[in-house]
Simulated scan of single mutants.
Amino acid sequence: MKPVLGVVTVVLLAVLSGCGYLGGNDGYFRDRGSDYQEVQVDPRISVPAGIESKPMGDLLPVPGQFETGSSNEKFELPRPQPMIVSADAAEYSLQQNGSVRWVQAQRSPTEVWPLVRNFWNDYNIAIATETPSLGELETGWVAFDLQPDNPLLRRILPAIGQGREVEGQELRFRLRVEPGVQGGSSEIFITHMSRSQGGSRSDWPDNSDNGNLERAVLAELETYLNQTPGGASITSLAAAQAGPGATLAKDGAGNPVLTMQSDYNRAWSAVGQALGQADIRIADLNRSAGVYYIDLAEAASRQDKPGFFGRLFGSDEESEEDTAQRSEVRLTAVGGSVQVTVDKSIDTAADPRVATDVLERIQSNLN
Rank of each mutant, 00 (worst) to 15 (best):
K2P: 00
V15H: 15
Y21H: 09
N25R: 15
G27S: 11
Q37H: 08
Q37Y: 03
E38N: 14
P43Q: 10
V47C: 14
E52C: 13
G57W: 08
D58W: 10
P61R: 12
S70N: 06
N72R: 15
R79W: 01
P82Q: 03
M83T: 08
V85H: 07
A89L: 12
R107L: 13
V116L: 07
V116C: 01
N118Q: 13
N124P: 00
A128G: 01
E130S: 12
L134Y: 10
E136F: 04
Q147E: 14
N150C: 02
G163Q: 00
L171I: 07
R176A: 13
Q197R: 15
G199H: 07
S200V: 03
S200W: 11
S200Q: 13
W204P: 04
N210C: 04
L221Y: 02
T235R: 09
A240P: 00
A240I: 10
L258G: 10
M260C: 08
N265Q: 07
Q273C: 02
G276H: 11
R281I: 09
I282V: 14
I294F: 05
D295N: 15
L296F: 05
A300C: 01
A300M: 10
Q303N: 05
E321F: 06
E328L: 15
I346D: 03
L359A: 05
Q363I: 11
N365S: 08
L366M: 12
N367W: 03
